[in-house]
Amino acid sequence: MCRWLAYTGEPIRPSALILDTQHSVVAMSLNSPLGAETVNGDGFGLGWYPEDAAGSPHPAVFRSIEPAWNDQNLREISRAVLSPLFFTHVRAAAGPPIQQTNCHPFRHENWLFMHNGAISQFGLIKRELTFAVDPALYTGIQGTTDTEVLFHLALTLGLMDDPVAAVGAAIRRVEEAGHAAGIPFPMQGTLAVSDGETLWAFRYSSQGRSRTLFHSADVPALRTMYPEAERLELFGDHAQVVVSEPLNDLPGVFLEVPESTVAVLDPTGYHHRPFLDA
């Protein structure tokens, strides 16, 4: 469907991961070995929290329907800004039209949200799910994707208070509606959510066969493993990356997030929690 990357840690220029890695996100937009589609050229997005936004983070978002590999503005912006937490996403449209409002990530106040995957046969249950969104949040839905509806459904169900519980409740609502409509496996995907301080990365599907998801190992441990890897000096001790597929081929650098799991990343490091595994 799509490919995405999220970073949290010491401020860096997003280009270090979006453009300059062996298997960068821009490279994935042209050739995604682990993706459902090889090419992800139906637009992209970059959302970032400014370096000086501590205490009251409000993310900036740049989205375009251009292929990521062909957009000079992405190169300019990703090399110019510094950010301690950013999202980037390259899209392979699975039904909703190619338009800027359908490009990820999506934003509400200080929250960012993006998704790789799909709500199966979304058109059959779109009306029910959309009408379940709080009327006060409904006007925030600008595009036509299942992801944006899922985001606003999670906001309705308490995302700003308990992200894990709210995303779980939103997915269960999708599954209930899907099963009632005769859809055997309604939910598929990996999701990223952040409030500007913590990053939550979910891997879940109704069928138990989710899209791939990985996160990086601790940077101090990687420096011990690869003492001659000069590139690691670009990153601070608290740097963490979550990505649809590894950014390089070095063993041990990227760890797979298990099925039905949420990875929680914050300044203390990362830990995994079971997610809807029942």
Rank of each mutant, 00 (worst) to 15 (best):
A60E: 14
H115N: 14
N70W: 11
L112D: 01
A60F: 12
G45C: 05
P84M: 02
W69C: 06
R79S: 15
N40Q: 05
G45E: 09
H23N: 14
E109T: 10
H104W: 15
R91T: 04
E66N: 11
F113Q: 08
R127A: 13
H104C: 05
P67N: 08
A54F: 11
G35K: 00
L124I: 00
G95D: 02
G45V: 02
L85Q: 11
T38H: 14
D71C: 13
G45Q: 07
L30R: 07
G47L: 06
E66I: 00
V25G: 02
Q22I: 04
Q99E: 15
S29Q: 04
N73H: 14
R63V: 07
S32W: 00
N102M: 04
H104A: 04
I65Q: 05
H23Y: 09
V39T: 15
V90Q: 00
A92F: 05
P57R: 09
P57K: 11
L129C: 11
F62Q: 12
F113I: 04
F87R: 08
H108S: 09
T130V: 04
M114H: 15
P33G: 08
R127I: 03
E128K: 07
L19Q: 12
F62H: 13
R91P: 09
Q72V: 07
A54D: 14
G117I: 00
Q99C: 02
F122P: 07
G41M: 04
N116I: 01
F131P: 01
H108C: 06
L74W: 08
G35C: 03
H104L: 01
A118S: 14
C103Q: 15
A54R: 13
W48Q: 06
Q22K: 10
R127D: 15
D20W: 01
S83D: 08
D42C: 02
I77D: 06
N70V: 00
A27H: 13
A68P: 10
D71A: 09
I65H: 02
N31Q: 13
Q100Y: 04
F131C: 05
Q72P: 05
T130S: 11
